[in-house]
Structures are given as C-alpha cells and as structure tokens.
Design a binder for these strands. Sequence first.
DNA 1: AGATAAACGTTCGTCGCACTAACGAGGGTA
DNA 2: TACCCTCGTTAGTGCGACGAACGTTTATCT
Lengths: 158, 158
Amino acid sequence: MSPTPEATPARLRAIPSRLLARTATVAERLVGERLAAEGAHKWHFAVLVALDEAGPASQADLSRRTGIYRSDMVAVLNQLSGTGCIRRDPDPADRRRNVITLTPAGQRRLDRLDALITDAQRELLAPLTSEQGRQLVSLLGILTEHHQPKHPGAADEE
Amino acid sequence: MSPTPEATPARLRAIPSRLLARTATVAERLVGERLAAEGAHKWHFAVLVALDEAGPASQADLSRRTGIYRSDMVAVLNQLSGTGCIRRDPDPADRRRNVITLTPAGQRRLDRLDALITDAQRELLAPLTSEQGRQLVSLLGILTEHHQPKHPGAADEE
DNA sequence: AGATAAACGTTCGTCGCACTAACGAGGGTA
DNA sequence: TACCCTCGTTAGTGCGACGAACGTTTATCT
C-alpha cells in the first residue's frame, strides 16, 4: 500500500558526521558549478584571497595559508599565471622559493569570483535566518579550529 | 623574523562551504578510522540502521533510505551478507527484487558499530557544549532537508 | 670545513566517495 | 501486443584529499 515514502531513518538523520558530509557535498556542488561556469576553481579563489590579504608569498606559504597541498598548488598557480592573475618570480633571497604576486588582473578576477561565491553561500544558507547562518559559521569555526592538522612536535595533550 | 604563523585569511575562514568541507573531512576521518579498525564501513552502519528501524527492504529501498547509490549498495550487501549480518533472498512477490533481512548477528554488529560511531561523534563535537552540538545538528538538518536531490518531475520553483 | 637535516617546487600516484551509463531480467499498463 | 519503468549488477568517471620521492637549495650541527 502506501509504499512508505522511504524516509531516512531518524537515527541516521541525527548523526553529525553524516549531516556534515551531505551538506558539504551540496555546498561544493553549488560553489563548483558557479565557478566552473567561468572556468574557475575553489582553489583559485583561495589563493587569490590569500595573496590579497597577506601580500606576496611563496608557494609553501600559500599552501599552508589555504590548506591546499603543495602538490595541487602547482597546477593552480600554473593556471592563475597563465591567465595573468599572478606573477611567479624566483625569490632572490632564497633560490628555492618562488614569490607569488597578485596582479591587477588577478585582483579583478578575485572580485568576480568573490561575487560568485558569495552568491553560492546565499543559496546554500537560504533556508536559514541570518542569525542562524552566523551561528552555523561560528560553530563550524570552533570545530575546524579545534581539529587542526597537528604539526609533529606540537603539544598534543590527551 | 616572526615568519608570520601563516594563518588562514579571515575572508576564507568565514566561508560556510569551506568550513563545511573541512569539518566534513575531519569527521569522515574520525569515523572512518574507527570503523576501519574493525573492518567496517560507514555504509555498513547505515544499511544496518535502516534495516533495524524499518524492517526488511529491497536494495532499492535501502538505497533511497540511506542515500547510498544502488551501484555501491551491491558491494556493501555482499560484505554484510558474507559476514552473516544480513540475508538476501529473492522476493517471491516481485522477482526483480531481493529482500534484505537483518540477522541476529547483524543486530549485534549494529550495536558494536553504533558504539564506535557515537564515540567518534563525541570526539568530533568535543569542543562544543551539548547545547551547541544540538544547534549544529539542527541547522545542518535544515540545510540537508532543504537541498534534497530533486526528483525529475518534482516542483522546482525559482 | 664537512656532513646532515630540513624546506622548497615539482611530478606522479593512490584512495575514497559521489555519481553516471548501460544492460538483462522482470513487472505495470495501454 | 508494445511500451516504459523498476530492479540488481557491472563498469567506469571525476574530483578532492593526501602521500612518496626527487633534485635543488638553505639551515644546522659538530
């Protein structure tokens, strides 16, 4: 008869890790679609923001600031440099490093991507009040700050 | 000098989709590690819960209830059946279907996995008060409910 | 000084999850 | 009958997170 609407079990619906996984998937799709429509990528935005906020940096710096792996950073910078958004010069003070610098074109690109991402966040948080949205960001901020990748040698009580 | 602790830019730290992605990654690692230590998997638990809560079901039912794709469901059920946690019998009423039934061994397995997962959630939400934990679950619940995979033919306003 | 360890940029590869495509077998309905 | 949908199954794609290793350069230790 009523074929049971096949609802997700309550016990599953209440599991934080599960909710996080599903919500994160939705969020990545919302952001990814918008950025892909302009040939852009999550990671491009992160790098541009890091450069805009803290000035020129080495690739390793950018990697640590954005959380993008060094290995993946290479391709990102290749693309950003290919479109003239950044310059990549060898560091005269340390010849292992490259100095990555934001160009005016990169600044404009950043503004554009920022608009897209902001719009995606709006759609993501649409069912929440702005107060709830702030709460969510605050709670997630606490979690990410607490569960940071631990450096070897860092104090690790417990 | 102070080489700048290489903090993540504030503009990045406030982006919901980014926070979700990072937190979800941490959460999946916490859960995954514990389950892997017992040769188990996220999906095993979800299936067992669905069977325990709503009784025997077809594979397609389980797929819809748990959000696991039919394609991935096959392997999961193979493993669960291999360890005697479920039985998989052809449905006499509809010979396309298999009827999946939870066995007593599956019930015990469920209890064990439930303990592991509960423990992982505790560690995940450790930095939050229990009230904050409930808030987080509630907010994520709203989001996942709102952004459901849309069925073809379903009303899709805006 | 020389030896050793570390950090940098880079290439390549792995693992897991979400997801699609296609197919044969069966079932519902005109 | 013909048509279309569902079911279980196999295979494969795309992407994000992550690790290994290498040559080069710099920092550290004795």
